[in-house]
Computed example of a mutant assay.
Amino acid sequence: MTYVIAGGCVDVKDKACLDECPVDCIYEGPRSQYIHPDECVDCGACEPVCPVEAIYFESELPDRWSDFARANAEVFIPLGSPGGASGLPVLAADHPLVAALPAGDPVAGGAR
């Protein structure tokens, strides 16, 4: 299990979580941020600082955002595990799930 960034982050990307992550496992995409499941140490430091409450422990994802666990893992297939996001550019593309969401989509935004 790992932490997952869900739909509330799409088109928001506050980035408070980046400063809190002790292992630098949160990567930025064009429309959302993603937690690398192989690099996350499950510390939970990112969850309470997210102003849109978009970060969940994988087993606690709401049903409407359950596909975001897969999206957070699959977005890293082309990248592999670089061992940290610092110094890397924004990911070339968002996961197709995120990319397909229209701006302002109610599935993407909203509180828990």
Rank of each mutant, 00 (worst) to 15 (best):
A71E: 09
L97W: 01
C17Y: 07
I26Q: 13
A45E: 13
I35H: 00
L91R: 10
A73G: 09
P102T: 04
D105I: 00
E28G: 01
E60F: 00
V90R: 07
C40E: 14
A108H: 11
G87E: 04
D14V: 06
S81R: 13
G87R: 02
V107M: 12
A54T: 03
D11E: 13
C21S: 08
H95F: 03
V23C: 08
D105Y: 01
F68C: 01
L18Q: 13
P89T: 00
E20T: 14
Y27V: 04
G84L: 05
L79K: 08
S59Q: 10
I55Y: 00
D105Q: 00
P82L: 11
P22C: 01
P37R: 10
A108L: 06
N72C: 05
A69K: 10
G8D: 09
D19Q: 14
L91D: 10
G104Y: 06
Y34W: 05
D63R: 05
I55F: 00
I55A: 00
Y56S: 02
D19I: 02
L91M: 13
P22V: 04
L61A: 04
C25A: 14
T2Q: 11
V10C: 14
L101C: 05
P51Y: 04
G8N: 07
F76P: 10
L88S: 03
V75F: 07
P102K: 04
S32Q: 11
F76A: 07
A45L: 08
S81F: 07
P78F: 01
S32K: 14
M1L: 08
G109A: 11
K13F: 02
A85I: 00
A6R: 07
C40H: 14
A73Y: 00
S81K: 11
G29T: 12
P82C: 10
A108N: 09
A93R: 13
C46P: 08
P82E: 11
A16M: 13
G80L: 00
G80T: 06
L101Q: 11
C50A: 05
V75K: 04
A92W: 02
V52L: 00
A71Q: 06
F57K: 06
L61R: 03
G8P: 08
P82V: 12
V49Y: 14
S66D: 01
D19R: 14
I35L: 01
Y34T: 00
A108T: 09
G104S: 08
V41C: 05
D42Y: 08
P22H: 04
E39H: 09
Y27S: 05
P62T: 07
C21G: 07
P89E: 06
G80Y: 01
W65H: 15
E58F: 04
A99C: 04
E74R: 03
V23L: 06
C46G: 08
P82Q: 10
W65T: 06
P106L: 02
C46N: 07
C21I: 03
P48K: 07
F76C: 11
Y3C: 03
P102F: 02
S81L: 06
C17T: 04
G110K: 07
R31E: 11
A111P: 12
L97G: 10
R64Y: 12
S81Q: 09
P106I: 02
A99G: 11
V41N: 10
Y3M: 01
D24N: 15
L18R: 14
A103W: 13
V98D: 12
W65D: 15
G109M: 04
D14N: 15
D24R: 12
G29D: 09
D38E: 15
N72I: 01
P37Y: 13
V90N: 02
D11Y: 13
V98E: 10
V41S: 04
D105S: 10
